[in-house]
Design a protein around this nucleic acid. Structure first.
Lengths: 189, 189
DNA sequence: GTCTATAGTCTGATAGAC
DNA sequence: GTCTATCAGACTATAGAC
């Protein structure tokens, strides 16, 4: 459909609900209430419930790419700094906003075939950022292992934080990022 | 309710469906069809849909504990061997059977408060096995980092394999386990 | 762009025969 | 232990007024 500011705001609110309840048990009535309108009005902005999910996932992935891109630009060529920046950016999109990126990761399977095909290149672009940074770290001897598997394991470790991270706890996303890459690097000295 | 062989078999079949479709979008009619009975008959074995989920998660976690326990018993006191055995056991419960353990991890949030309270000690017992093995590896200097965070990151990396692992691919759960702990250990030589 | 009203379908669960 | 039949409510989505 279109791409109005109104639709963007509605998408943002849908993301919060999808994170809290999960896509399947979020009803259009719940979405409408969260948005302050009646359920019938929702379908003026989105063709169906599926389209809302696709909009959330697209926004979440685009945002993750933008945040990661910025984080990489503001740090030098040091592989460790870049790895840290990437992990911190990833965790912030997941844990600080608790936003659309969580939906993109956890509700991907709920997309229909058409939407999945349409959004796959975005997801791939984000993962390509990760694999490039991990390649640099491997080449520098900072970490070691198979390129594909290291990427998957690192992203998995980060993605699963959503399930146990306590925002009221003592550790920030930045500290978590440091601990994760510290775990992968050979001890100093 | 009871604990008949019939109920156990029905629970096993429900697990397959919950993995494939997710709990929320699995209907009692789908469950009944998978079990070869009519939907009304289901409620002779389970009070409601929630109880089926609780049965699956209990079975999945008990099985994971049993498999892990056996794996640890059949290897010596070498911290690396124990870490490897634990990771392999975990991956096999997730990737080979594609069974109830996946449901336990991915649908935990769908349990009602009562079931969650009832099953928390089982989940904790399984995680305690992990933390003990990780403690040994830390004490031996095999890996390094914060005990709590290393546990969470390792389990996260393993749990997320469900989302990308291809059973038809080249790598076995055993190889994956080796790659993961290899990634955490300082390079030899 | 939002509303009311509702169509049409599916849902979890129950009752009672066999 | 399984069946048939069904209830009562919830669901997504649509139509048409404003």
């Amino acid at each position: 459909m279109n791409d109005s500011p109104r639709r963007k705001e509605l998408t943002r609110q849908a993301a919060r609900l999808f994170v809290r309840e999960g896509f399947d048990r979020t009803t259009v009535r719940m979405l409408a209430e969260e948005m302050g309108i009646k359920s019938g009005s929702l379908f003026h902005h989105f063709r169906d419930k599926q389209e809302i999910l696709a909009a959330v996932i697209e926004a979440g992935t685009r945002n993750a790419i933008a945040i990661a891109h910025d984080a990489l630009e503001t740090c030098d060529r040091d592989p460790e700094a870049r790895l840290h920046a990437m992990a911190r950016a990833h965790l912030e999109t997941l844990l600080t906003d608790r936003n659309a990126h969580v939906v993109a990761l956890y509700e991907w399977r709920r997309l229909d075939d058409e939407a999945r095909a349409h959004l796959a290149h975005l997801r791939d672009a984000y993962e390509a950022l990760w694999e490039a940074v991990i390649d640099e770290a491997l080449a520098a001897g900072l970490i070691h292992g198979d390129r594909f598997l290291v990427s998957r394991f690192v992203m998995g470790a980060l993605n699963w934080t959503v399930r146990w991270y306590d925002p009221a706890g003592a550790r920030s996303p930045d500290e978590l990022a440091g601990e994760l890459i510290g775990m992968l690097m050979a001890p100093r000295g």
